[in-house]
Every structure is written in C-alpha cells, then in structure tokens.
Write a protein that binds this DNA or RNA. Structure first.
Lengths: 100, 100
DNA sequence: AGTTTAGTTCGAATTTATTCGAACTGTCGT
DNA sequence: ACGACAGTTCGAATAAATTCGAACTAAACT
C-alpha cells in the first residue's frame, strides 16, 4: 500500500473551527511556532517528547486542517506553514496566534 | 448544594490553547459571535439545537477558558465576551476570529 | 406557600482524540 | 541487493469531550 498523505484543504476549504482546533494543542502549536520561526522543516527536527507515530498523528491534524502543507523531498517530508492561505482566509489570525 | 459557577481565569491566567480550544466548536463560536454582535446576553436567548444541559456545558467551557464572563442578574445569568482581557493577552486574536 | 423561569449539576452513554508499538513504504547510501 | 533512515499506517488501549434526561437551586411572581 502506498503512503497516502491526507489531502490538504484548498484555501477556500479552510474551516475556522478546524484551524482553531488544530492550533489548540500545545504540541501542535509548538510545531507551528517553530515553522513560523525557522521556515520549512522536516518532521524529524521537532523535538517532541513523543514517539514518531504520535508526532505523525499531530502532523496529520495540522495538514487536514490546512495549517501545514507537506511536500516530499527525497526521503524527508518538508512541512511549511500555509501562511498566505491562512492570512487570505482568516486575516490576522495566524499573526495573533504566533504572538501569544 | 449551591450553584458553583466554575471560576473564570484572571486575565493573566488566560491560556492560548484553552481559548483556541473553546473557540474551535461551531456551537461555541456561534455563541461568541452573537455576544460580539449583540453584547451581554443571558444563556436563554441563544437558539441552539441542543437541550439546555448541553448548552450549559458549552457555556462552562467558554467560562473556564476565559472567553466569556458571567454575572448573575436576578434569575438570569448574563454573559459577556471578555474582549478587553482577551485583547490585552492575545492582541488581534478575537478580532480575527470574529471576522472569519 | 406554590409555580414558573433560568440555568446548573449529576450520572451515564456515546463519540471523538490521543497515545503507542509494530509493521510498513519509499528513498538514499554502500 | 541490503541496510539505514524518515515518516506513515494500522490496531487497540486509554483518555477526554460531548450529549442528554432527570434532579436540582435560586429568584421572581401570584
């Protein structure tokens, strides 16, 4: 069975409640803050006190809500914050979340 | 046994993740939007397709996260959005959430 | 005192999220 | 071809949220 990365919602499909839910978890919020600070990063660099299957779950939530986009780069999966899409759909939200 | 309204966190105690979580539910977000639009309101005016015990649960989540403040006024409980506290602690967040 | 109104609290059922190990896929290096 | 590496997927356990009816409190009115 090939690996299926869950489909990321298009900009138009972004849902406020799903985005807020994804961001309402300390681990995921930490990931998002680090992506905002350092730019594109593979999953592996995040030092989280959880096994990789748990980390993978949190990335899935971030992807499915549309907060993060993932592209394959060799054997790594590179993650970026969907800043522009989020900003277009929910102006000011991400900035406010990252400040707090 | 007297009625205990759960304690509302002080401005300093507001937690980003708790606030985002509280706002990540359609019903609660609807309540918050209506409070923002119409100002202080008793629980009863919100037309939500849920029995009152469920509504009460959602108000509790909003209070415990610090999104809403509640005061007694006769037999009603009046709810207000804690706009100033939220704005002081998380500038721009509420505005962004209400716009979306 | 009794009734109505507003909303909470309790308890239990259901649903949904999180967690983790183990097995897997795909890519790279040797 | 064979490991090693990065990360996903599966499956099952645990934990947490939501839901609701029923019983309750407290204020207001008659």
């Amino acid at each position: 069975m090939p690996i299926f990365l869950p489909k990321e919602p298009s900009k138009k499909e972004l849902l406020m409640t799903a985005v807020l839910y994804a961001l309402s978890d300390e681990i995921r919020l930490g990931i998002v803050r680090q992506l905002a600070a350092k730019g594109e990063q593979p999953c592996g660099v995040f030092e989280v006190d959880r096994p990789k299957s748990s980390l993978s779950h949190h990335f899935r939530v971030l992807r499915e809500s549309g907060v993060v986009a993932t592209r394959k780069d060799g054997k790594a999966l590179m993650n970026t914050l969907r800043q522009e899409d989020l900003d277009a759909r929910f102006p000011g939200l991400l900035k406010a979340v990252l400040k707090g």
